[in-house]
């Protein structure tokens, strides 16, 4: 149970490899979302006014509330990792459950927002109907809104699935203070997804608040 996989010399080497591998994976995620941020910055520079007006179609209160939800889930995740390090199985299960429930709440709110946008004919490519001089740029902005938050929400859903799996593994007592790289890595992933939202929120919701 606490022996390393056959190609590693010892557990320390295995643990370091897992940690480094996860961070390198997160680097690829930075660049994955980075393409979206670069594209957004590109248009924000060329369509500044139109984007600021279009941003007012989003309700910043919902965005801020969801930010709080996600930050809270990050706190729960950090505590879950701590519980795994200390070998406290019940705490680990508790915090994993809290993290994934808050994550699910975030996604639910997100979909509620989407449904509202659909009802207001604000979904590009799907019965889109905005009139006026900024109609086209509004469509562009909303395209970004849906792609960026959609890709983010997809990451959330994947994260929740991982957390639920970990919860079940924790219940079966798989993790120990020596062996819980999966929990550590899931934590890194979850915090990263949180960071993406930390940037998405002001860029999408608050651009036109003044």
């Amino acid at each position: 149970m606490t022996t390393p996989a056959h190609h590693f010399e010892d557990l320390g080497q295995q643990r370091e490899a897992a940690a480094l591998g996860m961070w390198v994976f997160l680097v690829t995620e930075i660049l994955f979302f980075g393409g979206l941020f670069a594209a957004f910055a590109f248009y924000r520079s060329t369509h500044y006014d139109a984007f600021a007006r279009a941003a007012n179609l989003l309700d910043w209160r919902v965005g801020a509330g969801n930010t709080a939800v996600l930050i809270t889930s990050s706190l729960m995740m950090a505590l879950a990792v701590r519980a795994a390090r200390l070998g406290r199985r019940r705490d680990l299960q508790l915090f994993l459950a809290a993290t994934s429930l808050l994550g699910a709440l975030f996604v639910a709110v997100k979909f509620w927002e989407y449904a509202h946008k659909a009802a207001e004919h604000l979904v590009p490519g799907f019965d889109f109907a905005v009139e006026g001089p900024w109609a086209q740029e509004t469509r562009l902005f909303l395209g970004f809104y849906f792609v960026m938050t959609g890709v983010h929400a997809l990451h959330m859903v994947i994260g929740i699935c991982v957390l639920v799996t970990l919860w079940e593994m924790a219940r079966r007592g798989v993790f120990s203070p020596e062996r819980h790289a999966l929990v550590e890595n899931a934590g890194l992933y979850w915090h990263f997804v949180d960071i993406v939202w930390i940037f998405l929120f002001p860029m999408l919701y608050l651009m036109g608040a003044h």
């Binding site: 961070w23 930075i30 660049l31 980075g34 670069a38 910055a41 520079s45």
Partner: peptide, 17 residues
């Protein structure tokens, strides 16, 4: 590595802007 990720993101954004 984390720094490299953000640095390369900066390259992507500045040079495309």
């Amino acid at each position: 590595f984390a720094g490299a990720g953000f640095f390369w993101l900066a390259i992507l954004i500045t040079l495309s802007l």
